[in-house]
């Protein structure tokens, strides 16, 4: 699924497009960054309700190139700047975590991570 399709399904505001409409194969929804780091899969989309620079750091370490902030959360400027520096796409959706994940899953984003 293309990142632009993810944005469309979630009615998300794109805060930084990452410079490329990347292909997303699986998704991880978590507010715990250490749980995210236990998730091994390529071309991952991260959905989180946590707003912190460590979300971008975690994405960077995991080679995650797109992050969706749920429940209408909008990251502060310093977080967006870090994302731009790292080339990580950032968007914000008003849907809560469960609904956002459900919508993506029902539209075909079903790739699971392995531990």
């Amino acid at each position: 699924m293309k990142l632009s399709k993810v944005a469309e399904i979630l009615g998300a505001e794109i805060l930084y497009d990452g410079g490329e409409d990347i292909e997303i194969e699986s998704a991880c929804g978590s507010d715990l960054m250490s749980d995210v780091m236990a998730f091994v899969k390529e071309n991952v989309l991260l959905l989180t309700g946590l707003v912190s620079p460590q979300v971008i750091r975690t994405a960077e370490m995991m080679d995650i190139r797109a992050v969706v902030f749920v429940r209408g959360k909008v990251p502060a400027q310093n977080i967006l700047e870090l994302a731009r520096e790292k080339g990580i796409a950032v968007m914000s959706t008003n849907y809560p975590m469960f609904i956002a994940c459900g919508k993506l899953y029902s539209e075909g984003l079903t790739g699971k991570g392995v531990r």
Partner: peptide, 15 residues
């Protein structure tokens, strides 16, 4: 509250 302290740090390092 910062998204850490889940008790996964050392296990993740080992992984």
């Amino acid at each position: 509250e910062m998204g850490f302290g889940a008790g996964m740090g050392l296990p993740n390092m080992k992984r």
